[in-house]
Each structure stands twice: as structure tokens, then as C-alpha cells.
Design a protein around this nucleic acid. Sequence first.
DNA 1: TATTGTTGCCAACAAGCGTTGACCAACAGG
DNA 2: CCTGTTGGTCAACGCTTGTTGGCAACAATA
Lengths: 214, 214
Amino acid sequence: MQDSDTRKKPDQPSAQPASRPRRSDATRAAILAAARERFAADGYERATIRAIAKDAGIDPSMVMRYYGSKEGLFAAAADIDLNLPAPMELRIQPAEHADPARTADVGRFLVSHFLDRWEQDEVLTALLRVGATNPAGAERMQQILKDQIGPVAARVCPDPADAPRRAALVASQVLGMALARFVLRFPLAVEMSKEEIVDWLAPTVQRYLTAPEP
Amino acid sequence: MQDSDTRKKPDQPSAQPASRPRRSDATRAAILAAARERFAADGYERATIRAIAKDAGIDPSMVMRYYGSKEGLFAAAADIDLNLPAPMELRIQPAEHADPARTADVGRFLVSHFLDRWEQDEVLTALLRVGATNPAGAERMQQILKDQIGPVAARVCPDPADAPRRAALVASQVLGMALARFVLRFPLAVEMSKEEIVDWLAPTVQRYLTAPEP
DNA sequence: TATTGTTGCCAACAAGCGTTGACCAACAGG
DNA sequence: CCTGTTGGTCAACGCTTGTTGGCAACAATA
């Protein structure tokens, strides 16, 4: 899902789903990488197509040809997969027993996973920065919450009916920490070790997901 | 602190600290109000001086005359007072007894107060939006955290030495919820009632502030 | 080899931005 | 009354932005 392209001119209207490699694939990838870096560092407006093109070592007009517009470029760059485990896998860990505390430590796992994910892929910071000022970015985040975090919550929380609310609570804590650490760069949020953060946030997330009531 | 001006031409170099009212005070206030609205709605880059001036019903050049530059305007508009109670007042509530759980419900009070504050004053949303893309905005937020939340944490948490860390944790949860509810406008974060949010977040904040260890 | 599509650069466009300085109207103090 | 200060508009500046079309070089196909 990550490197999907917005390819034009579908040669065979109903042919193979993955189009064969092109000579320009390296350039496309360079543009995408530069775009992620710039969006992460500067946000949507200040990440100019000219700057991105310069980073990628090509002409600005190429960006337009391959991605149509700045919005198209962002859409391609912000195609994110959180790599969350399929919900079923979560139940396996603590063997197979009844309702209370279905998964021993979803909270711990999730917080740790998110921190790793954020540190290794700047596109998450990019999406967070852009989402704060750009409607399309905010919508994309909302979609990720719904499609990728929601299902996990649905499997783990007591009443699947209010899984969305649980997911939103989890998102508020995780995004808040990401904001403080990777976007605003509060010194104290930056200096804390990953383990320390996990120790503090895991019980919170665990409670948001599994507590029967506040 | 809220409506501080960047007044030029100090007539008497060492005269009264508060200058007398001017004929243009209404215009200044209109500009500031429009600026807060635009910054909150659009972020720093897309909130143009021209648009702000139009909202205020005056010429763009007036903004420059009264606030020097766009940065100056933002600095004036983002002069924020969280209205947190002086730390001493917090200790009074549960009478006067020893260490464990100094204040019965700081968490509940803080979450409720922040939600109120955010709802009634759009400048908080403005600062959050701008802080995500603008270094000056991020620095301002950091300063508010240090000067206004830090002291509260220092009085309430077990070891005043790591009050800053406690404050950062609290900020991560509170800012995260503000981000989800007021900036990204996740439907489920918007639909939840204020009481519901307080019920969920209060224990978290309480723990971040008063728990002896994670 | 001739033709056709792909890859890339260059120069330019129109629009929008923050910012500036000239200029006029209204008021204030003597 | 005049005179200087203040409040405000207007038109323009220099610059950057996203975006476009033309044109040369290369690769692939026939």
C-alpha cells in the first residue's frame, strides 16, 4: 500500500493489476521520498513543489507530470499502513480464555508499536503536521483511525458496539504523545526514553480499550 | 496578558506602564479578533493578512502598522493565559493533611477546565494549529507548558523534581484530545459529551500527576 | 531505419503573498 | 484659526507559488 502510484494511461483497460516497471520508477520514488521528508519537516503549505523537486534532483514540472498536482503528490506520499497485526492474532497470545482482560497487554504492545512506527517512518509525522492545517490531511487521519485502529479496538474491548469511542480515546493519547515528541518537540517529551513512555502510557491505553466503564 | 499591544513611539520614555486609550483601539481589537479566528481556522500560512484585514473591515496595511509584521500579529494574538488557579489554591480544597494524594481530584479539575477553556477561546485552537507547522508557535506552546502547567504539577506530584515530566505527560493527553476534538474533528471525539471525556481522561491525568511510579 | 512514446529541462504564465510609501480626512492642542 | 498628529485608503513593489506548454534527447517498437 505504501508505494502505490497514481499511474495514468491504463494501457490495457482490464489487464494485470500491477503495471510493469518503467524507466522513471527511480525518479518517482525519489520524488516521493523527498516529499515525505519535506511534508514531515515543514507541513503542507511550506513544503513547496520546487523544494521537493530540488531535493529529488529533478525539475518541478516532473512532479506535476507524475502526480498531477500538489494534492495528488500528498495523497500518494501519505498512503500509510500502520502495520497493526490482524485483530485475530491479538487473541492468541494469552491462550484462549473468557471475557475479562481478553488480551493481557494490548496497551503495552500498541504504545510500543506506535512509537517504533513513528520513529522509523517520517511520513507519520508528515501526516500529523499536515492534518493540523489541511482538511484532506485530517480526513486521511480519520480514515486511518477508522480502518486500522478501530478493528483492533473492536476485538479487544468489552462491547464491540462502542469500539469507535475506545479507538478515539486511544488515538487521543497516542497522537498527543506523537505531537509532543515528534512535532512540537517538547524537550521533556523528547528526552524521555521509549521504555519510560511505554511504562506511563500503556496502562492508559489498556484502560481505554478494556475497562468496562470509565 | 491577553490583549497586550506592541505599541510604538513611547512618548515618555519612562512614564506610566499602561498607555492611555487611543482612538484606534477598536480597530486594534477587531484585527486581533479576526486574526485569532483565521489562525484557528486555517493555520499560519493560509491565514493571510489580506483575509484578516477583510474580516476586520480595514485595509491590510493597517495590520502592518499596528503589529509590524505577520509574525508580530501572531505573537500578539497568541498571548495566552490558561487561567489555571494559583498552585496554592489547589492544596486548600481537601483541607490540610500529609503526602498521599494531596489533592483529591486535580485530574478531574484540570481536564474539565481545559475543555472549557478550549471551547470558549478559539485562540487555543489557533495556537495548536499553528504550533504544528510553525517553529515560533511550537516554542510558544512549550513556554506555556513550562510556565503555567509546570507549577501546578510541581505542587501536586510526589517529587517536585520530576514535575516537568509529569507536566509533559499531562500535556500529551490533554493536547491529544484537543487535537482530535477541535483540530482534526474526529467525529467520535466531537460527539462525546464533555462529561464523558472528563470521566475517561481524569483518571489518566490524575495518575500522571500523582502516581509514585508508572 | 523510421516512427512513436517516454523522460527530462527550460521558460514562462497568472495569481497570490507580505510589505511599503504616498496621500487624504479627521481630530487635538495651542 | 492654524498646525501637527493620528487613523485610514490606495496603488504598487518584489517575490514566491502551483501549474503549463514547448522542445530536445533517449528508448523501444515496427
